[in-house]
Simulated scan of single mutants.
Amino acid sequence: MTSELVPTGVAAKALGVDRATLVRWWQQGLVTPTLVTAGGHARWDLDELREQLRALRRRDE
């Protein structure tokens, strides 16, 4: 099953954070988008992104 890839603003809203927060996490290397377009825009698989965040929380415990 292929998940829909969403832009950064949609992903941030789904997580309940500001778009700038998700971009900052990306720039800091905390999360990685599923795809980066030729124009440099991130596309996110929400399930994958949530798993990356769960892994970060486990790492920080």
Rank of each mutant, 00 (worst) to 15 (best):
A12P: 05
T21K: 08
E51N: 10
L30E: 10
L35K: 13
G39H: 06
L46A: 07
L46Q: 08
L46R: 06
V17Q: 02
D45S: 14
L30M: 11
R58A: 13
T21P: 00
R43F: 07
L5E: 02
M1T: 04
R57A: 09
T21H: 10
E61C: 06
V6D: 01
A11G: 02
A11M: 06
K13F: 00
L49K: 06
A42H: 10
A55M: 10
W25T: 04
V17P: 00
E51R: 14
W26C: 07
T21I: 04
L5C: 04
R59Q: 11
G40K: 04
R24L: 13
V10C: 10
G40W: 07
L35N: 09
V31Y: 01
G16V: 06
K13T: 12
E61H: 09
A38M: 07
L30Q: 11
H41K: 13
E51C: 02
W44C: 04
W44N: 02
E4V: 15
L35M: 12
G39D: 08
R19L: 03
V17Y: 01
L53D: 01
D47V: 04
E51F: 05
H41G: 08
L5A: 03
G29S: 06
L53E: 01
A14S: 15
T2R: 14
W26Q: 14
L53Y: 03
T2P: 15
E51A: 14
Q28M: 14
P7R: 15
D45T: 05
S3H: 14
T34N: 07
E48H: 11
W44Y: 12
H41F: 15
A55Y: 03
L30G: 00
V6K: 10
T37W: 06
A55S: 12
E48R: 07
T21C: 06
E48M: 04
L5P: 00
D60R: 11
E48N: 10
A20C: 02
A12Q: 08
R54C: 09
L53C: 02
L22P: 04
S3G: 05
S3E: 15
A12W: 05
